[in-house]
Design a protein around this nucleic acid. Structure first.
Length: 711
DNA sequence: TTAGGGTTAG
């Protein structure tokens, strides 16, 4: 098993001074400065606040938070040139007079130049023949009998480079070895390993590496980077770390290629601290990272949703004067999207175009996706227009992303045009993703006819419907209250061997909440029973008024823990709706409390000294009304205790642009009237309800007076 | 794939 990372860090790197974020230079380069200004001044999208669950906490921890313990330990007066420092609790003191320890070679490993001479035409033909012959050992070895002799190093390399199947590369390497015609060289292994990597044969690569060690053939940077990248390709990250450690132990210094490969390994493991540490150690000893490194860092911070980290990448690129290339732009755009910064992503995209870089399919996919998720239909449509005008490249993923964007922002006609375009195209025929996107659109609209027609079309055209397609179809039928059709579709999914996932269960659960305790509810519950019996048992448990809060809490935890993160809030929303439909108000409040307790509603309340806001945009109608009642009780208590209150109170329901939030503002407004609370619809902003402190205080006081009079 | 590292879909 691989040693824990701290061992690597402590054994091989003793100079651990960290200067990141403390010494960022003012922006100098034009392009980066521009983006950086965007990033610091025009942010209209608030960062997603960290949620209290341990998983999310880890995921969303910002860079400055991660570095806080370190920053506390680092003396602020120490300049970067002083070489005493420590990184964490396992710090190692270094002699201040000793030079910084190098962690990577300043030069990339040189490749021996070799070229195949024109006289080798016959050998080339022979190599192609080897490529064509059967790949069984017997067939291949019998073909090899016709090989030119004497065999030279050049011949071996030409053949190895020509062989396309990894099985043959391996057989050929073995053959050279057993023939004992010429000394085995590192390059023979490297070329073979590359072929094996293409076939994702990590075990065989490792076998070759051990053979090299046993027979004394030196492993070089190319060998190690190939081993590491193959391990990565096979998701064997511990193996990648193991070989990286071994490299240092044997005294070989990685060059920048191996170094960035291992940075990517740690990044994919989510070991952000280690990546930063390795990166900074490299930087401290004079390494100038290249665009590939910044792409690795950008992707890592994007995955972590860490906007501070993304800014750090911009600052570092500026500081080492590296201009982003197309891949770096693509990675950073994607990262900004994941960090919930559509405005910055738009700024960066425009900056990229201005700098003269032509976007590719990946760029456009990233940006369209961001606009869709942000529900920026105008920007998305404008971009689509520009794509057509500029003849920017399209592929089927981009087509499907455009369709998903249409689903996100509710552009039905535009989606239908795109879908027709795809059917007429030569290379972008609709696949299961495209059909699912269309089903999603019709599902959100509740257009049963079109959805079912599409379903039939799919069956005829042989496009496989997956669990998500069935989920959309079930959602569509549920919204249209066509419960018998829903049961038929569910049964058909079971017959086809579709395994229901948490999203499908969430969809069935939402249909249960829509069926309002009618006879049809039983039909839907029977489907849910097959898909997730525990969830049905939980519904029965919460519907029983005798069930204690402690029991509900325990079972709630179990249900949520076994569900994927994305469905936890929808689950909770639906469960609250189900309780409210059955007048189980107290239970609805308990569930909202538990949802808040376990971090499912992280952005429900925002407080500043000027205003307090209740943001119910990610809540179902039932959950939103429950949250409103809860808020009013709390505010009443605060008023009665005469505690400090802000000037303004705000309740946000959104405008219903989100397909799941339609009608929320109407139901919310009606509930405000029912409770007779002093909130009024804001004139400037639809979906915003406001009340002043005076309104609220006098409402509480008049309620108290009324209550006192009644008693 | 022509000896090694980075970017696209619910």
């Amino acid at each position: 098993m691989a040693a824990p990372l701290s061992t690597v860090v402590d054994v091989y790197f003793t100079d651990t001074k960290r200067t990141r974020l403390s010494g960022s230079n003012p922006c100098r380069q034009k392009g980066i400065r521009k983006c950086f200004i965007h990033c610091t001044t025009s942010n209209s999208t608030p960062e997603a606040p960290p949620t209290p669950t341990s998983d999310n906490n880890k995921k969303n921890t910002s860079l400055s938070d991660q570095l806080a313990p370190l920053a506390n330990k680092t003396l602020s007066t120490v300049t970067p040139d002083q070489s005493y420092a420590f990184s964490n609790s396992k710090s190692t003191w270094v002699n201040p007079t000793k030079a910084k320890r190098t962690v990577l070679s300043s030069e990339r490993q040189k490749r021996a130049t070799y070229s195949h001479s024109p006289q080798l035409r016959d050998l080339k033909r022979f190599a192609h023949k080897l490529n064509e012959c059967g790949s069984s050992e017997d067939e291949f070895l019998s073909c090899l009998e016709d090989i030119t002799r004497p065999l030279t190093r050049e011949h071996v390399l030409l053949i190895l480079n020509t062989l396309k199947q990894w099985q043959k590369s391996r057989l050929f390497l073995n053959w050279i070895q057993t023939q004992n015609l010429l000394p085995m060289e590192t390059i023979f292994y490297n070329v073979t390993m590359k072929s094996l990597r293409f076939g994702k044969q990590f075990a065989l690569i490792e076998e070759l590496a051990h053979q090299m060690i046993d027979t004394g053939v030196p492993l070089d940077n190319i060998t190690y980077s190939t081993i590491i990248s193959c391990a990565k390709k096979c998701s064997l990250f511990d193996k990648a770390v193991h070989w990286f450690e071994r490299m240092y132990k044997t005294g070989l210094m990685p060059d920048e290629v191996t170094y960035s490969a291992i940075l990517d390994v740690y990044a994919r493991l989510g070991k952000v601290e280690e990546v930063i540490s390795l990166y900074e150690r490299g930087r401290a000893t004079g390494w100038k990272p290249d665009p590939i490194t910044f792409s690795v860092l950008g992707k890592m911070f994007g995955e972590a949703g860490d906007y501070d980290g993304i800014r750090y990448v911009f600052q570092e690129m500026e500081s080492v004067r590296v201009q982003p290339n197309l891949v770096v732009y693509n990675t950073l755009l994607e990262a900004l999207g994941k960090a919930g910064k559509p405005g910055f992503a738009r700024g960066l995209f425009e900056e990229m175009i201005e700098s003269g870089i032509v976007p590719n399919e990946k760029t456009l996919t990233a940006v369209i996706k961001i606009y869709g998720k942000a529900r920026w239909s105008r920007d998305a449509l404008e971009l689509w227009q520009r794509m057509k005008e500029n003849d920017w490249p399209m592929d089927f993923i981009l087509y499907n992303t455009l369709l998903n964007m249409c689903a996100d922002v509710g552009l039905v006609e535009e989606a239908e045009i795109l879908f027709r375009d795809m059917k007429q195209s030569a290379h972008c025929q609709p696949d299961s993703w495209s059909y699912t996107a269309m089903l999603n659109i019709y599902g959100s609209q509740g257009d049963v006819d079109k959805a079912m027609k599409l379903f039939e079309e799919m069956c005829k055209s042989g496009v496989e419907l997956n669990v998500m397609g069935f989920t959309c179809l079930i959602q569509c039928l549920g919204r249209a209250m066509e419960f018998d059709g829903l049961v038929r579709v569910f049964d058909s999914s079971v017959e086809r061997g579709i395994k229901p996932d948490d999203r499908l269960c969430g969809c069935l659960l939402s249909v249960v909440s829509l069926s309002h305790g009618s006879k049809d509810e039983e039909k839907v519950l029977a489907c849910l029973q097959q898909a997730n019996p525990k969830l049905v048992a939980f519904i029965q448990l919460i519907e029983d008024e005798k069930t204690s809060f402690e029991t509900v809490k325990e079972e709630f935890k179990g249900i949520m823990n076994s569900a994927v993160v994305e469905v936890r809030r929808p689950f909770c929303n639906c469960l609250i709706d189900i309780c409210r439909n059955k007048d189980l108000l107290e239970r609805a409040h308990e569930l909202l409390y538990l949802g808040t307790l376990y971090g499912l509603y992280p952005s429900l309340h925002h407080k500043t000294s000027e205003q307090w806001c209740l943001d119910v945009r990610s809540l179902s109608v039932g959950a939103a009304l429950t949250a409103l009642e809860e808020w009013m009780w709390t505010l009443t208590k605060i008023v009665k205790r005469e505690e400090t209150l802000p000037e303004l109170f705000l309740a946000q329901t959104g405008t219903g642009a989100h397909k799941f939030a339609q009608g929320l503002n109407i139901s919310f407004a009606s509930h405000l009237r029912k409770l007779a609370v002093p909130f009024t619809q804001s004139e400037e902003k639809i979906g915003c309800f406001t009340a002043t402190r005076e309104d609220l205080v006098s409402w509480v006081q008049s309620n108290s007076t009324a209550a006192a009079t009644a008693t």
